[in-house]
């Protein structure tokens, strides 16, 4: 059962936590677990162990300064509120420090759940432009942080190493292999610049 229509399309206004409209009750005796199954497949297999103790959010350095709430995202995911989960900008405030994972008494692995939700978000078109650019750089230069200026080569010479290191900065064929992989997985299409609607 798809619960999306029931939440009054709050997804596009996800920053607004309350509204003048009362939200319809979510029927948890008929849970929509299609989203949970997707998350489990992308690497968050233990998500259903969560009993909402809040240790994750209490441990979270991102949650201490933003409205990123791991505990809330996991509960939303379990309620099948996919659109709310994947469209929320806060999803991108997790630094993947794994403190929540190391402290979770239920072995939920919240960090992996967050990464799995991000995978689904990106597949449905929710990605931040700076991340898209970083991904594109790897396809262009073989590196997320490329040797893109002479001054970086000068820096290398100054410390006494060869101007161009023996990585993809030196070997064009390595970059070619990365592009072939990205083409095969569809990653190139995923991160290419999209036409403005």
């Amino acid at each position: 059962m798809d619960l999306r229509p029931k939440i009054n399309d709050t997804s596009c206004r996800c920053v607004i936590l309350t509204s003048i409209d009362e939200k319809p009750a979510i029927e948890i005796d008929v849970p929509d677990d299609s989203f949970v199954q997707m998350i489990k497949k992308t690497g968050g297999p233990n998500i259903q162990n969560c009993f909402q103790c809040g240790t994750c959010s209490g441990s979270c350095p991102a949650g201490a300064r933003t409205n990123y709430l791991v505990r809330g995202i996991i509960r939303k995911a379990l309620l099948g509120l996919k659109q709310q989960c994947i469209s929320a900008k806060e999803l991108w405030y997790c630094t993947t420090c794994y403190t929540c994972t190391d402290r979770c008494p239920q072995d939920v692995k919240p960090t992996d759940v967050i990464k799995a939700i991000r995978n689904i978000a990106v597949a449905e078109g929710y990605m931040l432009e700076p991340h898209q650019k970083t991904a594109q750089k790897v396809l262009e230069a073989g590196h997320a942080v490329p040797l893109d200026k002479d001054s970086w080569q000068d820096l290398r010479e100054k410390v006494g190493v060869e101007r161009i290191p023996p990585n993809a900065s030196r070997y064009a064929e390595a970059i070619e292999e990365i592009r072939k992989i990205a083409k095969k997985t569809g990653f190139d299409k995923l991160v290419e610049d999209k036409e403005e609607k």
Binding site: A135, V138, A168, F187
Partner: peptide, 21 residues
């Protein structure tokens, strides 16, 4: 030397974008 090694790739962006890639 590890000739022809590329970006690891960046776990934050790549791991979040597409686990298989």
């Amino acid at each position: 030397d590890m000739d022809g090694a590329t970006c690891c790739p960046a776990p934050g962006v790549f791991g979040s974008f597409d686990r298989v890639t």
